[in-house]
Write a protein that binds this DNA or RNA. Sequence first.
DNA 1: GCACGATAAGTGTAATTGCACGCAAAATGG
DNA 2: CCATTTTGCGTGCAATTACACTTATCGTGC
Lengths: 146, 146
Amino acid sequence: MKAKAAGLGSCNCLSLRQAARHVSQFYDQQLAPFGLTLNQYTILVRLAVLGAAPITAVAQDLVMDRTTLTRNLKPLQAAGLLTQKPSDSDRRSQYLSLTSRGEHVFALATPAWAAAQARYEQEVGAGQAAALRQLLHNVVQTPLLG
Amino acid sequence: MKAKAAGLGSCNCLSLRQAARHVSQFYDQQLAPFGLTLNQYTILVRLAVLGAAPITAVAQDLVMDRTTLTRNLKPLQAAGLLTQKPSDSDRRSQYLSLTSRGEHVFALATPAWAAAQARYEQEVGAGQAAALRQLLHNVVQTPLLG
DNA sequence: GCACGATAAGTGTAATTGCACGCAAAATGG
DNA sequence: CCATTTTGCGTGCAATTACACTTATCGTGC
């Protein structure tokens, strides 16, 4: 009997987690000089691109737990990069929006993020990177739990 | 000027993290009835497939931090699924090996893992899943940090 | 206008993770 | 053979994450 197929290499989930850890370390390293983690930078992107929004909406866009987002907001608020204020029409909703300082830091950090993207795509291959993103997008959209 | 391309959908790292979270939740749910997290099950696989090995070697195989592995071992040892004993030739090395009980639980949990794999591959597509694993493997092998 | 459930957020808490550090055993080399 | 460096592990600690719960506000029906 031939050796049992690698239970390790064939696990879809493990390969995802390992790759995510590997790439996260790299992106975090690139963004560290600006005092941002990838998660924090991602929040800035979301607000910069799509504008102000309530916490729950942002969390859904980022596929993050709402409470995790809440805690990720703290250091950003403390650094004066974004503000949070209740909506006029619904005082339960806390609208998040970038401050001018937030936009500034976002503009400063974006080249570092772009450099990380470029380095990654150079190493992995631009076509493969695009294919990978598409596959991952499909995976996230796929309902599995139940 | 047209709207800036989605900074969100185009981030390689974010798409990886989101997919990893999404799929991890599913696998963990499938393995929960056996009292195993995906990480713990992965450790059993590693030992079942490749046999006994020192902690550092296992950590490298699994692309896990060594200290994280050490802590993941605790509940498995407490449950009597694996044992840890110093090598005869090098008493620094702690050799990990499955107990018969560990092999038993591994055999019990493997169908659940296989079912998760099958469900995932059914939803995502077997061909796409294989392509994704290959791409992810490439990514993990790619040196990025520096 | 008021009681009711539904929705948006914040907090307590526990599990997980990984870096920095310390300790013991082995290898090196004078 | 002893001193030094290297290697294999465990632990303290802080950061991150997410589930369960609480609070405040909104909408509905009576």
